[in-house]
Design a protein around this nucleic acid. Sequence first.
RNA 1: GUGGAAGUAGUUCAAUGGUAGAGCACCAGAUUGUGGAUCUGGCUGUUGCGGGUUCGAGCCCCGUCUUCCACCCCA
Length: 446
Amino acid sequence: MSKETKAKSIIEPKVLKGFRDFLPSMEIPKKAISNKLETHFSSYGFVPIDTPVLEYTEVLLGKGGGETDKQIFHFNDNGGRDVALRFDLTVPFARFLAQHQQELALPFKRFHINKVWRGENPQKGRYREFTQCDFDIVGVDNAEADYEILSMMDSSFSVMGIDNYEFHIAHRGLFNAFLSHLGLLEESVEILRTVDKLRKIGEEEVLSQLQDITGDLQKAKAVLSYISKEDEQEGFLATLDRLSLLAGGETEHTNRMKTIYSYLCSAGIESHFTFDPSITRGLDYYTGIVYETFLTEIPHFGSVCSGGRYNDLASLYTKQQLPGVGSSIGLDRLLAALEELKSPIVSSASSSDVAIFNSDASLFATYDKVAREMRQQGLRVDVYLQNKKQTAQYKWAEMNAIPFAVLFTEDDLQSDTLTLKNLINRETYSSISIKEAIAYIKKDIH
RNA sequence: GUGGAAGUAGUUCAAUGGUAGAGCACCAGAUUGUGGAUCUGGCUGUUGCGGGUUCGAGCCCCGUCUUCCACCCCA
């Protein structure tokens, strides 16, 4: 083949807008985080499930359609079926519940970590293909279930090694009670949408938009006062009381929130939660508590974990009552955020714990023997497979963020010892046994 | 989907419409000898892609793709 024709036959390697490849430096931390979460969810008795990425469009869109219509990837398959890529993991879950309710014991607690697709315009931390990490409790409508989801959200962030985060909580039912009290229930969808922008466009703009919607300055002011805290220091219960008053008195929703808060206090995690009445959530299937999660240093990144209670979602597919509450971590957005924060979770992604350097190809059996013993002890060990010069091997280890290297001096070979090098601080441990080396490494990486 | 900005070597950035360059990185060798030093030499681009204007386009015009930003919405 001539050079020219060869050049012409090459297809340009490219991926679609909003879709991405994951290099090891991102896939390693992503896998590490999702593994940690899976273990963590299991410790609460949650079980894994999976559903098809492709569903009938009518199943995913339900009756409503609306905004999701524009964002969903849908097409006709080769058999002419109207199909769509799942847009989130919650709607397919509702379908799954309706279809398998006989085979499931309620309450049912599941987690589901997988990709979803939305045809939105991408931005930083916002993609057309991204991984969601959902966890839900179905079959219980009480404060205990709501609390357990919040509690697990909180501990999940600890497990992921993230410190600075805050959960913003509100209640759809309470807000609707308030709107109903004002006689604004009809406009609730528009109002919710406007209210949601408070953080972004400020009070003045929100007020003016509310006035446009309600046609009544007094009512607009009432809504604004509902969603604005009197001051930053206003506590969870103070906010709750104020809102209850505005909504025309205590309701079951108020009591539910009080109970949930008391559990958060008992667990000693209440400081991570604030009552933020401006949180409403765009998805209209929420009926009770709703929440979003912000990383303290970069709130503009948007929510990295959101959800709420949806008591009627399964009613699209079954007549049985299946109340649910759940939450979803946006793994890709979270990862993008951690990268922005230069978190060690992302920057320290290493392919293995220790590299065994190759200074003499004929010693491969020795290298392999040490590697096998170290692997037996749970270490990730990478033997350098060719005898290249030291610099090359050091560079390679550095590229892969491997923290330790094992080398063998003449003395080591005589006395059955080895030389361990910490590649980060460059400390050298000479003439030590394999056992000692393993101990050093384990101590450092844990 | 709508509007705006950007796209030059692996990377960070240059280049009045007139032969596309520099630092870092990378590769080879020397020196050193269980790494970040030093020296010598070397490679690198169809200027995102496709058209157009022009004697001549990285630069101007049109289209397109991607990224980023805003709207919308959301993880």
